[in-house]
Simulated assay, not measured.
Amino acid sequence: MRSRPRSAEILGAMMAVERIEGPVMLVHPQGPLATARSGMMIADVAAGMQAEAARIGALARELAALRSLRETAVETLADGLSSLQDARAELSQAIADRRDLPPRVGDDETRMLALLNSVRTLQELATSLAERPSGASSDLPVFASARGRLELPVIGAILRRFGEADTAGINRPGLVMATEPGALVTAPWYGTVRYRGPLLDYGTVVLLEPGEGWLIVIAGLDAVYPRTGDVVAQGDALGMMPGGSVAGDEFVQAAPVAGRSETLYLELRQGGQAIDPADWFDLSGQRP
């Protein structure tokens, strides 16, 4: 009589073991009842692990979709940036071809190259150009009327003003500005492009003559649109700052891009002598 409850217990355990799949059918050292209990525990754990595996699989598929979407977005943005740069160049050329201004009047190229080879400083070059103006100033708006209200040629922040020394102790008679990479540079006033290209240690420059005896020096550009001798209007595109080609990762990593900047240098000269641009340009909103 006493053996019947024990037999029933063993029989129930064996029936439970038969319902358990896989390795849990292994016999537990403590007997069939312990085997059944451990099998049920493992079955519960397996169900939870299976659910977690399904969740992880869904996340992995979502991550793969996001990666694919990111790659597509980067390619689209890169194509858009390239198209924007091409459009800027085409727009500046269209403006140059259609504006109602005097025709191109340039220096003889051979004479200009000889002049560049003979000068050692920007002041020497500015003085030489002031002594032989382009002759187009009489057909342009009077430069003196723009005193105090000229727009800066690029959007940016002034790092150093007229005569302020840099970290190396070198001072220049102009403004140094920090700009965004690839920023568009425009003409502050109507004028004749006396020279465009590399100059001494200033990098790529544009020398703009807004009036007889005057010279606006804009240095640090990458691409320059007008040619030497072209007449430009106020606000016309002169070129672009370096850094306009953006890598794919920079579209999705905002912090490194935010820290990047380029440097533009701006001078104003009269009769070859540098004068403080702050008297002519609208510097409202800039630091003292």
Rank of each mutant, 00 (worst) to 15 (best):
R99A: 11
G203K: 05
D107Y: 09
L264H: 12
D108Q: 00
V217G: 15
A58F: 11
R172M: 05
A178D: 03
G235P: 06
D79R: 13
V24S: 13
G106N: 00
G135T: 02
E124L: 00
D100A: 04
I10T: 14
E124Q: 09
F143Y: 11
F162C: 01
P141F: 06
I95E: 14
A136W: 03
P277R: 04
S261M: 15
L115N: 00
L63N: 10
L91G: 06
A16F: 00
M1N: 11
E151K: 12
V142Y: 02
R269Y: 09
A87H: 10
M14V: 11
G235V: 02
G106C: 03
R196S: 10
T72C: 07
W280F: 14
D279V: 06
V193L: 07
I216V: 15
L116Q: 08
L150N: 04
V154D: 00
E164N: 08
A187L: 05
P153C: 01
A157I: 13
G31T: 02
H28P: 09
V176G: 08
E71M: 00
Q93R: 10
L116S: 01
E209N: 12
V231I: 15
D249P: 04
S261K: 12
P181Q: 00
I155W: 08
S83T: 08
G229F: 14
E9M: 01
A183W: 09
E90F: 08
R111H: 07
A130P: 08
T167I: 13
E151C: 05
G243D: 01
A237R: 06
M15K: 10
A58E: 13
E250Y: 15
L113D: 10
I95F: 11
G182A: 03
G163E: 03
F162S: 02
L175T: 10
A223D: 15
A178F: 05
G239S: 12
G31R: 07
P102L: 00
R104V: 09
Q93D: 09
G22E: 05
T186E: 06
R149T: 10
L33V: 10
D249Q: 03
R98S: 10
Q50S: 04
P242A: 01
R55D: 11
L215D: 10
D79T: 13
S92Q: 01
L221H: 04
S145P: 01
Q50R: 09
D108Y: 00
W214A: 04
P23T: 08
A278E: 15
V193W: 09
G135C: 06
G22I: 04
N171H: 10
R111P: 02
G271R: 14
D166L: 12
G213P: 11
P133N: 05
R161W: 08
I10R: 14
F281Q: 01
D249N: 02
